[in-house]
């Protein structure tokens, strides 16, 4: 299936395209009930980059994504997304971020089209009906458009969640283990979406437990272990064993 995308330059103002970093994180820490989850992270992701965020369970990947998406607040440090502070300019960040999690988070009693139209209205998209129809067509869901989400298969639901993630043409796409429970066709679709969005100028940050898949999809790899950033470099320079060694090296150092 071919995923065509609208060039990001059509959807965003010129000033935004000239921003040097899509994500700028400085000394970010996060604690839950005195338990540190992220410890002094500092890194930057340039615009249009494809980044894999890797790490073992409990490394803090989801927490970092939730902070970038404004769903959680940093305990300390500064986080800028497209130049906007996640704490003080949360609405500006939300307009520019698309988020797809391993759970679809769709309304099961609404149809596929109604879900897309509802979120289109939430993002203030003026032609939300036309946009919803176009995405349903692109993601091969046209025949299922009027069926309730609870009647769709897992793969169809995840496709719909992906469509919803790019509905508002976000400048930054956050993918939190989007490959969980997907069959081969859906995985191929996911890879195609990531590459197509990158070609359209969208920055992508994805987490996955499938290290090889993450490295193949990304240009840059960030490796978290124990809430610390233990690697930030080209994905091509790493293989699966290197990443596993980074996980365990951190564990040994603690």
């Amino acid at each position: 299936m071919s995923i065509q995308t609208m060039p990001a330059s059509q959807a965003r103002p010129a000033a935004e395209q000239s921003l040097p970093a899509a994500i700028q994180v400085e000394a970010l820490s996060k604690t839950f009930a005195l338990r540190p989850v992220l410890r002094g992270l500092t890194f930057a992701v340039p615009a249009r980059a494809r980044v894999a965020l890797l790490g073992p369970n409990g490394a803090g990947k989801t927490t970092l994504l939730r902070i970038l998406a404004t769903l959680a607040k940093p305990s300390a440090g500064e986080v800028l997304v497209a130049g906007f502070d996640v704490r003080h300019d949360a609405d500006q960040v939300r307009r520019r971020v698309g988020y797809v999690g391993h759970q679809p988070h769709l309304y099961e009693d609404l149809s596929a089209r109604e879900n897309l139209e509802f979120f289109g209205r939430m993002y203030g998209i003026s032609d939300h009906r036309a946009r919803a129809d176009a995405l349903l067509e692109r993601f091969g869901l046209r025949a299922k458009a009027n069926e309730r989400v609870r009647a769709l298969s897992r793969g169809q639901v995840q496709r719909l969640a992906l469509a919803r993630g790019i509905l508002h043409e976000p400048a930054l796409l956050l993918l939190d283990e989007p490959d969980t429970g997907l069959d081969e066709d859906a995985l191929a679709l996911l890879a195609e979406v990531v590459r197509a969005r990158a070609a359209a100028g969208v920055t992508t940050l994805l987490t996955t437990h499938q290290i090889a898949r993450g490295l193949a999809l990304a240009e840059t790899a960030l490796v978290l272990a124990g809430g610390r950033l233990v690697h930030n470099g080209p994905a091509a320079a790493l293989d699966v064993d290197d990443v596993r060694a980074l996980y365990t090296a951190r564990r040994g150092a603690r």
Binding site: L71, R94, G101, Y123
Partner: peptide, 13 residues
């Protein structure tokens, strides 16, 4: 229960 509240909070609403 469906996690859709988080998804709603992600929107600039």
């Amino acid at each position: 229960e469906h996690g859709s509240l988080d998804r709603l909070l992600l929107c600039p609403v």
